[in-house]
Design a binder for these strands. Structure first.
Lengths: 208, 208, 208, 208
DNA sequence: GATGAATGAGGCTTCATTCAT
DNA sequence: GATGAATGAAGCCTCATTCAT
């Protein structure tokens, strides 16, 4: 049940093999993440793909539609994972644990998309086309904040904290990791999740 | 003892009233932070300042030099604060507390600059001109990581965590706040610092 | 009896002391000659004069009017000298000798103006304002070519040469010297004139 | 054995038809020569070529690189010709005759480039990129001055002249012709060379 | 006489995009 | 599927010029 809709295509752009598309989008995502969307030229992407700038337009409508497809694909997959977790009927603490772990898995698989999302979503939401980013954020907040509230009610989270602050704290703590995470590094996503959870839940000071 | 160097000026830059410069830099920083450096046109800044695009060049060499001045001014002031803390001879836990509090104060005073720093520093460091960002990062890591290490040795921080991961966790946790913080909001920087420290040090799960 | 007219002035620009004007024009001429008129910014001239660009407009209407005044002043003085020679009733060979000598004297006194004239007059003549350059050129050609013709008729110049070519040869030979001549060098203008005349009249091959 | 270096190219410049490049460079050279490099706008060149200003940048890096290519191409060809002459083992007088003739041929084929060279080389040499102009000038002086010296030693040139002055005299005499020469005029380059040589070698006064 | 600050026009360049081949 | 060449809009920056002080 994806939130995002891939925007309608004017020109019958079916012919291009979906594999080549995915390959090109991967390259584009990497460059967008490294240099920023605005600073990335279509030519740079084409260079990286071993073709000329104009040739990209056989595969995609525009630079923006590449960005769109990268972000919406990522969000679709993210919500697949989140929805599975949320539907599992876990307790609040276990839900948080599962969401954090799932998040690091997504960072592992979509590092570039996540980095782009972090950097660009703020300005993007002003555009009609990217309104689905707002929808996603709303659902996101509902899921996390709701779980935190359930947890406070259940006594598994501290009651003396500002919950919105706590929400932002947990959310940022996780996602900002995309800025330094490198797939194939020494820590698996699950291992990183475990350590993060340990800090978030129990703090960095030793328990008495 | 600032890390940053104010770039050499061929032409008698800054002969004019430093007040106007600061005013314009404030406007520029706001726009850079809101739209991203690359996406910000010089005309947009000028519009905001009520002048024509070309007129900005009476005060600044280039768009890039505005960015430079915004960032280096911020870093100079940041290090003023940090150095004071680091020279105070506090224990590791108190040092972390003081650094976090100082950081939120800087976010309060330089919100735009911090947001720009977060978003742009990655690509900027490739340029000679912004090499001081790297220097600052190195010092930054040394200060934080060193304090964490001292804390582990002293037994005031947990010994079972990957320290680099912990460093990133604490660092990001603090600075990412610039992305949503709005000066003059309901929480003072000190109050936010207190809550953050509470979470970072003790976790969000209740102590037994 | 100057050929050139200093263009009419809209604003009563009398107040500026003529000495300061001449001083500033000297500076401007030097820069125009060194960098080319178009490549010279008003600010560069002002820098050289120790003032700000805007201040020059107290003394002059425009950059172009500086150029105008530099060139017309030079041409006025040149024609003072030429007219004296032409009115002296000399024979053709002596006239050529006197004109060449007078030319090197002008180069000595107005090196910058001459260099500017060489480089810029071609495009300038298209403008109404600089039409006097054409007038001067016409008179110039008349004086030199006429003298050469008289000389051929009198048998003091070779009859087997294309006279227009000869005219250009002599003319260029003399004036192009402004591109390398430096006042105060080892050769006086008169000495250079003597050597040039020796080459032009007798050639560089030894006489049998 | 060209003196000039074709500047390094980051981007695969010149992948396209060299014919189009040469065509465009020809147009650019013509405009540069007519109006001066600085006074020539990129749009003017594009207009002349029947395209938009931006389109030129498909073929060239910058306005400056057009100038560079025009000058270096000219100098390469000039030195091809000169080197052939210098390697031929002629006597000094015959060498001078051959160099002058070759020079007029180059003026005939590269009139615009020569005119540009005359007008712009002075300021250009200050830039790293155009340092090859200095190299060329040094070689040029060596070739001409050396030949003159040989000639004086051999008794075929007068011994009573300042040789540096003579060198400049001959050099300027020849090259300044580019300012008025029009290909396809009534005189062939060889005919002009013959007359120039006659004047330079034997003077304009009749031999006794 | 000069300064400080701004204007406005225009210049060079970049870049997403198009399209005939 | 891709290339080569071009378009057109827009961006950064320069500079002659103006004018209140």
């Amino acid at each position: 049940m994806p939130t995002t809709k891939t925007s309608a295509k004017k020109k019958p752009q079916a012919p291009a093999s979906p594999e080549r598309r995915r390959e090109l989008l991967g390259i584009a995502a990497e460059v967008f993440a490294a240099q920023g969307y605005n600073a990335t030229t279509v030519r740079k992407i084409a260079d990286e793909a071993g073709m000329l700038a104009g040739s990209l337009y056989y595969h995609f409508d525009s630079k923006e539609s590449m960005l769109d497809e990268i972000l919406s694909t990522f969000l679709d997959e993210l919500w697949d994972g989140y929805d599975t977790v949320l539907a599992a009927g876990l307790g609040p603490r276990e839900t948080i644990e599962a969401l954090v772990t799932e998040s690091f898995r997504e960072i592992d698989r979509h590092r570039a998309a996540v980095a782009i999302y972090q950097k660009e979503s703020r300005h993007l939401v002003d555009q009609e086309r990217f309104h689905y980013l707002v929808d996603s954020q709303v659902r996101f907040e509902k899921a996390w904040l709701g779980t935190l509230e359930r947890g406070v009610a259940a006594g598994v989270f501290r009651a003396d904290l500002d919950l919105r602050l706590t929400y932002r704290f947990v959310r940022d703590t996780v996602w900002v990791a995309a800025s330094w995470y490198r797939p194939g590094g020494q820590h698996s996503p699950e291992e990183i999740a475990r350590q993060y959870l340990s800090m978030v839940l129990d703090g960095i000071a030793p328990r008495a």
